[in-house]
Amino acid sequence: MSNRNSQAGKAAARERIRAERERQKKKERLRRQLTAVGVVVGVLAVAGGVGYAVLKANEPTGWEAAKEAKLVTPAHTQGKNGTEILIGDKNAKQTLEIFEDVRCPACAAFEQSSGKALIKDIEDGRFRARYTMYTFIDDAQGGGQGSKNALSALGAALNVSPEAFLKYKSALYSVKYHPDEREDVYAKDSELLKVAADVPELRHNKAFETAVTKGTYDRWAMEMTALFGRKGVKGTPTFMHGDKKLVMDQIPQRQMTQAQYNQLAQANFNKMIDREFGPAKGTAGGGAGKGGSTGEGGAKGIREGEKDPTGGR
């Protein structure tokens, strides 16, 4: 082999080696670039996952979430966000306001002693009733839910009829069902449905049961809850006529049976109402405006010319 051919072969070999090295370098650079991209994508994915988890963790839950849910107002309500519950003869000239909390033991005592007398006055057209339902005992008892949950269920009952609302409220306050205020029994839907079985309009009522279990009126209950302190009322039960707070006589502190207590409590309620609205006409029957149905409600809300019982809300 000539020296020239030998030199040419060596040059060609060196070129092949150089080309192979260059190809390997490009391949290594591409590998490093792909690895870096993969790391970035992985970091972004992790960061995105963490961000999503943080967002989910910070989303409101339970009754806080109910504040942001779609507002569904029960039938037979009026006013802003359906927070006016007006029950009684639409021709009644006066409105008695009643403030209650479903877990309130004093409200239960009133209902058990004088609830029927109140409903009779409403049915006789003596006045209409506006109910404002509070839920402050939930907070007072360390984060309970029974007042709010029961109020949502009352919304479902009101959606059926005003009569169903009154009967269900009475059942919730009854000796048979009303729990000690320290026990958050009404936080359970099953307990609310058990009580509803004693109300003819709600027994086996699938629409009512669905509204209770799905929390259809949870947002509405929160709107009612936001009325706490309206007209300065922060305790229950409270009765107001216009801006005037009505006060019942105290029951003497002496030993007595439950029946005797209930009799005195009802007599004191009747006296309070008589003082404010005058004696019932025809106490043997036939009160003023008698014949008004509790289911009529007031199509125009608070009567024109009457002192606004909403307190500007």
Rank of each mutant, 00 (worst) to 15 (best):
K194F: 03
K67A: 08
V40E: 05
M240W: 12
T283R: 13
D121V: 00
K67I: 13
P309S: 03
D198G: 14
E201G: 02
E64Q: 11
R128V: 11
K300R: 00
K307I: 04
R130A: 07
V40G: 07
V39P: 02
W63I: 12
K10A: 15
P179K: 02
K90W: 06
G142H: 14
A66H: 11
A153E: 06
E276C: 04
D180Y: 15
P200E: 01
N159D: 14
A197N: 04
A140Y: 12
F127E: 03
K90F: 09
S113A: 12
L71P: 05
L55W: 09
R103S: 01
T73M: 03
G42V: 06
N159S: 15
V39L: 08
S293V: 11
G215M: 10
A106K: 00
G242N: 04
L55D: 02
P279H: 06
N5A: 15
L151P: 05
R14E: 11
I87N: 11
A57R: 08
A226D: 06
Q112W: 06
E97F: 07
K245H: 13
Y168F: 12
D180F: 12
V212A: 09
E276V: 00
Q260G: 07
N3G: 03
A57F: 13
V233L: 04
I273Q: 10
E20A: 15
G297I: 05
A156D: 00
Q24A: 15
G282C: 07
G301D: 04
A92Q: 05
C104F: 07
Y131N: 05
K80N: 04
E123W: 09
E304K: 06
